[in-house]
Amino acid sequence: MDEVNAKSKEFAQGSKPLLLLFDGNSIVHRAFHALPPLTVSKTGEMVNAVYGFVNTVLKVAGEFKPAYWACAFDRPTPTFRHKKFEEYKAQRPQIPEELKGQIKLVHRVVESLHIPAFEVDGFEADDILGTLARKANEQGIEVVIVTGDNDMLQVISPGVKALIPRRAFADTILYDEQAVQGKYEIKPIQIPDFKALVGDPSDNIPGVPGVGEKTAAKLLQQFGNLEGIQTHIGEVMPEKLRTILSEHLPRAFKNRELTTIVRDVPVDFARESCHVSTYDRNEVVDLFRELEFTKLLPRLPQHIGEKGVVAGSEVSITAHYQVVN
């Protein structure tokens, strides 16, 4: 815990300003499935995912004290990945009605807190987050991406980290390059190739038969990427693996087009529009009361600091995340 507090203070007091990027849909989905049912007594409306999202925003913002923040959402329309691969995410069930309504409520929360929201037809929130992180980094801004999606680990760099939950929703890990190396034994930039080889059942992306995580990691350690494997296919051992790769590498190359986060989405990162700015606390209080989030009311900041940093709330925020080095 002391290590976590020291790390967050390092961000808050660092020479470079910090941008917090929230993966809206990912956080909402995680909260919906991880938290027990919670309904508004007056209407019966399900709000457990909204509660989880709000709790995450207040906790992380209170701990890291960003100068800038933004949130990205998926659009309901098909993406370029669906056009490339018709079966992309085809196995996923329809979004439950009780979750659809909560996504709309999360938009209301984001708007009331004056957090800029980004969504672009044809792209996923991951792509928007990757693009915003790159553009902010180019302007000398440190970035922490708050998400429930391990796919975001591929955009981690010296100036970009990712805060991701483990099994428990409130138990999160702050990933940097070294932490990714420790988890997968490869560099963040190699993750698209890794997932292209292993596949991704959650996105309905088939992997190379017989290639698991350990084999994929060893291949990438030895050859760097898919091109390296293709160029040195004759060096792949054992022979059975070489034969399988010779047959299925074309599929892996197609997979990588799906597993790679696009970082040139047509969105602009303007410091001014993403600056943590003054908000109407009374408006947010009214919304929280409507949703019956009475326990969260004391944690709302009384004001936003002059430097764009979220001011301390009335009740201290307990962090439940761990820094992995």
Score class of each variant (00 low, 15 high):
2 D>N: 15
2 D>L: 12
3 E>I: 15
6 A>M: 12
8 S>F: 09
9 K>G: 03
12 A>S: 15
14 G>E: 13
15 S>V: 06
20 L>D: 08
20 L>G: 00
24 G>N: 09
26 S>L: 02
33 H>Q: 15
35 L>T: 00
35 L>K: 10
36 P>N: 03
36 P>L: 12
40 V>N: 06
41 S>N: 04
42 K>L: 06
42 K>P: 05
43 T>C: 07
44 G>S: 08
44 G>E: 08
44 G>I: 11
46 M>G: 09
48 N>D: 08
49 A>P: 08
52 G>W: 02
53 F>Q: 07
55 N>P: 10
63 E>Q: 14
64 F>G: 14
65 K>Y: 09
65 K>T: 03
67 A>K: 04
69 W>P: 02
69 W>G: 03
70 A>Q: 05
73 F>V: 13
75 R>D: 12
77 T>D: 08
84 K>G: 11
85 F>N: 02
86 E>L: 08
87 E>G: 12
92 R>N: 11
92 R>M: 07
100 K>Q: 07
100 K>R: 08
101 G>R: 14
108 R>H: 12
111 E>A: 08
117 A>Y: 15
118 F>H: 04
119 E>L: 07
121 D>Y: 02
122 G>C: 05
126 D>E: 13
127 D>L: 14
131 T>W: 03
132 L>A: 01
133 A>V: 11
136 A>L: 04
137 N>W: 13
142 E>N: 12
144 V>Q: 14
146 V>P: 08
147 T>M: 03
149 D>P: 05
152 M>A: 07
153 L>S: 11
154 Q>L: 06
156 I>E: 12
157 S>T: 15
158 P>K: 05
158 P>I: 00
159 G>D: 09
163 L>M: 08
177 E>G: 11
178 Q>V: 11
178 Q>W: 05
180 V>F: 04
180 V>T: 05
181 Q>M: 15
188 P>T: 03
189 I>H: 06
191 I>G: 02
191 I>R: 13
192 P>A: 11
193 D>A: 15
193 D>C: 13
199 G>W: 01
199 G>R: 06
200 D>Q: 13
204 N>Q: 12
205 I>K: 11
208 V>F: 06
214 K>S: 10
218 K>T: 10
221 Q>T: 01
223 F>W: 09
224 G>L: 01
224 G>W: 04
224 G>E: 05
224 G>C: 09
228 G>Q: 15
230 Q>G: 10
230 Q>Y: 04
230 Q>A: 13
231 T>I: 10
233 I>T: 11
233 I>S: 10
233 I>E: 11
234 G>N: 00
235 E>K: 01
238 P>W: 04
240 K>S: 15
245 L>V: 02
247 E>F: 01
251 R>E: 08
255 N>D: 06
255 N>T: 13
257 E>A: 10
258 L>Y: 03
259 T>K: 07
263 R>S: 03
270 A>D: 01
271 R>Y: 05
272 E>W: 00
273 S>Y: 03
277 S>T: 13
279 Y>P: 06
281 R>E: 04
281 R>G: 01
283 E>D: 04
283 E>N: 10
285 V>P: 01
285 V>C: 00
287 L>R: 11
287 L>H: 15
288 F>D: 09
291 L>H: 00
296 L>Y: 14
301 P>W: 05
309 V>M: 04
313 S>Q: 12
315 V>W: 09
315 V>M: 14
318 T>W: 01
319 A>M: 02
319 A>D: 01
321 Y>E: 06
322 Q>C: 14
325 N>G: 10
